[in-house]
Design a protein around this nucleic acid. Structure first.
Lengths: 112, 112
DNA sequence: CCGTACTACTTTGCATGACTACATAGTGAG
DNA sequence: CTCACTATGTAGTCATGCAAAGTAGTACGG
């Protein structure tokens, strides 16, 4: 499991997080996990069994594309993923969807 | 399907919406759907096949409790659900969880 | 070389839960 | 009796997050 989130809350957000992580340049798998952890103050920390299937899913949908490169710090080669044009479009769409979701939820979060 | 939301986004939010709907007094199933629709400006509108199993799930966890009452407008009897003390506690917990989720997501929603 | 450690990616199997579609039933009108 | 409307219920399907285990590549100590 992850530290802070119920798995159900990650659903429908994971793909968005991955796409958004690649928005400013290619990253490889394990690096994405660290990236998301940092940017969310440790809130999201999923494991490889969550990450890699998701990446493959996105690649199959042609939203991202992977490219294997040798590691520069020693270690096995890394698979760097970058957004495709379709992926960028989808990211924009999902960002708006996330915003709408947050907006719709707001009345339920205020007050007790 | 629903109009605005991807089903995955509803996951982990549905139970919270239901609990929150009952916070200010008992409601019956179909009425909850209308209630949520209204309070979210039509964003969430799930169907009976989504609602009832969720209600049963919550009742099995003793977070809500149902009570059948005759309809006051004609029609079949209605099952009014109300929060149990445990349910109220759980609602508070989930509300904080939702807030944390929204907070963690914020950096990804800003800017392009 | 060999064993160990670390990094990186992959896969299997499972459990959860939203959705579609359909089923059941109470009530009142005509 | 039949039709329409309301209300609750459920079976089957599908997507997907997760734990756990496996496979490699690289470097280093001996």
């Amino acid at each position: 499991m992850q530290s802070s989130t119920d798995g159900n809350l990650l659903r429908g957000t994971l793909d968005f997080l991955l796409l958004a992580s690649l928005e400013h340049g290619p990253l490889y798998g394990l690096r994405i996990i660290q990236d998301v952890q940092q940017r969310t103050g440790g809130h999201f920390n999923f494991k490889e069994g969550t990450l890699y299937p998701a990446l493959h899913r996105l690649e199959k949908r042609n939203l991202i594309q992977g490219e294997t490169r040798p590691s520069d710090t020693g270690g096995p080669p890394r698979k760097y993923y970058h957004l495709t044009p379709t992926g960028q479009t989808e990211l924009t769409r999902q960002r708006e969807e996330q915003r709408a979701h947050a907006r719709a939820l707001r009345p339920y979060l205020e007050l007790a």
